Simulated scan of single mutants.
Amino acid sequence: MLSKPYRISNPISSLLFIYMMGLILGVFWRPPVAFILGITFLIIPSGIYFLIRKNRGFANLLFFLGVLFSGTLFTNHYLYPEFPENHIFYWANNLPLKIEGFIYRSPELFPDKTRLYVKSQYVWTFQKKFSVTGNILLTIESKRTSFLVGDRIIFFARLRKPRNFKNPGGFNYVQWLAFQEIYVVAHLSTDQNLCRIGVQKNAFFLRKIDRFRNRVREIIDNTSAPAKYLLHALILGERKVIPQNLRESFSRSGTAHILAISGLHIGIIATFSYFLFRYIFSLSEYLLLFTNVHKLSAFLSLLPILFY
Rank of each mutant, 00 (worst) to 15 (best):
L2C: 07
I8W: 09
N10D: 14
S13P: 07
I18N: 00
Y19M: 09
Y19F: 13
M20G: 05
M21N: 01
M21I: 09
G26T: 01
W29K: 08
P32V: 07
S46R: 08
S46V: 11
S46M: 14
I52F: 15
K54E: 12
F58H: 10
L65N: 06
H77A: 10
L79F: 11
E82C: 05
E100D: 05
F102C: 05
I103V: 12
I103E: 00
R105A: 06
R105T: 03
E108W: 06
E108F: 04
L109R: 02
L116A: 07
L116I: 06
L116H: 01
Q121P: 03
Q121Y: 06
Q121W: 03
Y122L: 14
T125D: 14
F130C: 09
T133E: 14
N135S: 12
S142F: 11
K143D: 14
R144D: 15
S146E: 15
F147P: 03
D151M: 11
I154K: 09
L159I: 14
R160W: 01
K161I: 15
N164V: 10
G169A: 11
N172W: 03
N172M: 09
W176H: 14
Q180H: 15
V185Q: 04
V185D: 00
S189F: 08
V199H: 02
Q200I: 07
A203P: 02
R207M: 06
F212Y: 15
R217G: 11
I220S: 00
D221I: 10
D221K: 12
S224R: 12
A225Y: 07
L231V: 09
L234A: 06
P243F: 03
N245F: 07
L246S: 00
R247A: 02
R247C: 00
E248Y: 01
E248I: 03
F250T: 00
A256T: 01
A260N: 05
I261G: 00
I261K: 00
I268T: 04
S273N: 02
L276C: 11
L276M: 11
L276R: 02
R278N: 09
Y279D: 04
S282M: 04
Y286F: 14
L287K: 02
L288K: 12
L289A: 10
F299Y: 07
P304E: 01
L306V: 12
